[in-house]
Design a protein around this nucleic acid. Structure first.
Lengths: 131, 131
DNA sequence: GGTCGTTATATTCTGTCAAATATAACGCGT
DNA sequence: ACGCGTTATATTTGACAGAATATAACGACC
């Protein structure tokens, strides 16, 4: 038995420093409603990727209805809609970002990068306090 | 009727540009659990301010139990506890931040400032897209 | 030793948000 | 005309996070 690790589950917490992750997130409020946040942004990304609101919803493991409501809120919150949808046709239709949508998505991504960079030093210090 | 505003509720959305607000928030994951986030940080702040977990909970309009559970998670996630509680005594006891707690709180606040600053330009651009 | 306000903890209840479900409409191909 | 896959929308169902409730323990002071 020499060399065996005594009495600890495979994934035991003993001396296991859990990997720590920083998520930098923005929430944009327009009045009371959340015009944009991490979830809505991810949805926008997946709409670009899939060209379909339904498929984007599936990818996010959420109901189509929820995804659709998020789009409603976004479109109502900005000066111009971010998502344009078509229905009918051979493929049944689909959804894509408007120019405004692409712009907003790009700006949000830029903000994420800027913030992550600005915070890096403090984060490594904070990380030292974690288990 | 000249000059009267025709048929609009006092708070009507007609031409009302809702005030837009950016919330920069961090979520710190230690493995699966959220070691720190906006809610827990606010709780820390109110513990400093009130010296009592119960009073802090009331201020945040949450149950004592919830506040207490948040503290449990925080204390378990960091190398040293962030909150120290006493019970008994004339005043019934109380809670305060440990040195580690104060340090973590300060670092989080610093990160908020750094991120807000770094993002300012992009945010004003994004804001222009909002209603 | 009794009171007071707090921390500490388990158990039950409930309000809310999202999932499920159902239905309609759309329009290009065949 | 019909089928297909999508968008669009209302209504019902359900899960679960957090609230409520209850109870105990603590310890300084009178």
């Amino acid at each position: 038995m020499l060399g065996s690790v005594p009495l600890s589950a495979p994934d035991s917490a003993a001396a296991m420093k859990a990997k720590s992750v920083l998520k930098t997130r923005f929430r944009i409020l327009s009045g009371e409603v959340i015009a944009l946040g991490p979830g809505k942004v991810e949805l926008l990304r997946l709409i670009v990727e899939t060209g379909s609101l339904r498929q984007a919803a599936v990818r996010m493991d959420m109901s189509y209805m929820r995804a659709w409501k998020l789009v409603l809120i976004m479109n109502a919150s900005f000066r111009e809609p971010l998502v344009a949808a078509l229905r009918g046709g051979r493929t049944g239709g689909g959804a894509q970002l408007t120019p405004a949508g692409r712009k907003v998505l790009a700006l949000y991504a830029r903000m994420e990068k800027e913030a992550t960079r600005a915070v890096k030093r403090s984060w490594t210090q904070l990380q030292r306090q974690l288990k």
